Amino acid sequence: MNNNNERLAAIIAEKLKEKGLIKSDDTSVESELAKGKLKETAWKIALEEVLNSNGEEANETTEENATE
């Protein structure tokens, strides 16, 4: 990374990943943020992916507990 925007985007993306707000394999948020082209819809999609995957995991756990 050779400019300040890229370094800052990497730091922000890492913090979001640590907090579980975006998927750990999501690179689109970081690259678009560094370019200054991250749109509201991209944020929404990234957050919804995490929320939906967490919801699915919770549903699976509930279903497993119900069958026991």
Rank of each mutant, 00 (worst) to 15 (best):
N4G: 01
T62K: 12
N54R: 09
E18G: 01
T27H: 08
N3D: 15
L16I: 07
S24R: 10
E63L: 12
S31W: 01
E57F: 03
G55T: 04
M1H: 04
A10R: 11
R7N: 08
N65C: 06
A58V: 12
I22Y: 03
A9L: 03
K15S: 09
D25H: 07
A10K: 11
S24G: 15
E18N: 10
E40C: 04
E40R: 15
S28V: 11
T67F: 09
E49L: 09
K35D: 10
T62R: 12
N5I: 00
K35H: 08
L16A: 06
L21M: 12
E68I: 12
N65I: 13
V29Q: 01
D26T: 02
K35S: 12
G55C: 01
K37N: 15
T41L: 13
N54L: 06
E63P: 00
A42C: 00
N59H: 06
L33E: 01
N52R: 11
E48R: 13
N65G: 05
V50Q: 03
L33N: 06
I45P: 00
A46S: 14
E63S: 08
K44F: 07
D25C: 01
V50E: 07
M1W: 06
K37S: 15
N65F: 13
E14C: 03
T61K: 13
T61Q: 11
K37Y: 09
A66F: 09
N3R: 04
E56D: 09
T41I: 14
I45G: 03
S31L: 10
V29S: 04
T41C: 05
E57R: 11
A9Y: 02
E68Y: 10
L51H: 01
K15Y: 06
K17C: 01
S24N: 13
V29E: 02
E48D: 14
S28H: 08
A66N: 10
E56G: 02
N5P: 00
E56F: 09
K23F: 04
G55E: 04
K35C: 00
N5F: 08
G20S: 01
L33C: 08
S24C: 02
N2G: 12
G20N: 03
A46K: 07
L16Y: 02
L16Q: 04
W43A: 06
A34F: 02
T61G: 01
T67E: 13
E14N: 14
N3T: 02
G55W: 02
I22D: 07
S28I: 06
E30T: 06
T41R: 14
E56V: 08
N5Y: 05
K37T: 13
W43H: 11
V50P: 05
L16F: 11
A9K: 02
T41Y: 13
L33F: 04
K19W: 07
E63N: 11
R7Q: 14
M1D: 03
A34S: 15
E68R: 13
K35Y: 03
E30K: 14
L38C: 09
L8W: 03
N65A: 15
E32V: 00
E18Q: 15
E57Y: 02
K15E: 13
E64R: 14
K44D: 11
L21S: 03
